[in-house]
Design a protein around this nucleic acid. Structure first.
Lengths: 144, 144
DNA sequence: TCCTAGCTGAGACTGTGTCTCAAATCTAGC
DNA sequence: GCTAGATTTGAGACACAGTCTCAGCTAGGA
């Protein structure tokens, strides 16, 4: 909230509602999640307002835009967690968050090596989570 | 083309046109690029057909789906080049392709360490390309 | 040649996100 | 506390990428 004020942005009722709702949200969420959970509550905030505020919160450093699964833009609170990467299971849709210092280092070094001033990055790994990999292996065994 | 036949898929005129057009395409392209370049030529292939074939070509191993810039799904031919990552410049929009073995290794090891069976991955690095980073630095110098 | 599963085209439809503009509201200055 | 005016809002139209439907067509095996 304070960060909005610092930037000369107004602290409207709607913005308070949105920020409060973000606090109540799961780790990842997208604009439509917010719109519907605000609608479910007593807060009346229009879709346009939510869509307008999200990029502002990213710029102000409250949110971080994470990968896009499908076509929706996903967000997560910056302070809630350290930066992390995501494993996406093709079979069950699970999203596994993880942090890997060696990977971070490799990314930063790759950028530096090429004179690139990196502001953010994301790694998307798609495949089978441990559970589905096992299930798949069993299914193939049975077939043979 | 052969790969389609191997899978029991038909080699229709439209599919030949699409595959030929992909060959004539720049490194990256998306469905709309293809649709419009097909329309510009003498080939008449509908949008639906193009959108239908692209995921098939990915599955068959002819194309690879790369990162999504904005909201469009981008593709690139698999054989044209080795797997590579992308640096995206926020300022000029340039996309720099690069390959970094250390980074690949770090990604694979991160997946393996977590029992994840990785099928594909992509790294998106956003920031300033060397040229824009220099321009930015100069601009800030001038201002002070 | 014939048959039919698979493919196509046209356009309606869906979902996500943006834009517009009149009306409402926040905040600085008095 | 009041006022002015700059910002923000809401509702809905719009834009765009991508999907779906279904009647008609066709590749390719028998």
């Amino acid at each position: 909230m304070q960060r909005l004020a610092d930037r000369g942005l107004r602290l409207t009722q709607q913005r308070r509602c949105i920020v409060a709702q973000i606090g109540a949200q799961e780790a990842h969420f997208d604009a439509e999640d917010l719109v519907s959970s605000l609608a479910a509550g007593d807060d009346r905030v229009s879709r346009a307002t939510v869509y307008r505020l999200l990029p502002v919160l990213v710029e102000v450093g409250v949110l971080r835009e994470v990968m896009r699964f499908g076509s929706r833009r996903e967000f997560e609170p910056v302070e809630a967690s350290e930066h992390h990467e995501h494993l996406v299971c093709e079979r069950c849709g699970a999203v596994i968050e993880f942090r890997d210092q060696a990977l971070e280092d490799a990314i930063e070094s790759a950028a530096r090596k090429r004179g690139f001033e990196m502001h953010r990055h994301s790694v998307e790994m798609v495949g089978l989570c441990p559970r589905c990999a096992r299930a798949q292996a069993r299914a193939e065994e049975d077939r043979s």
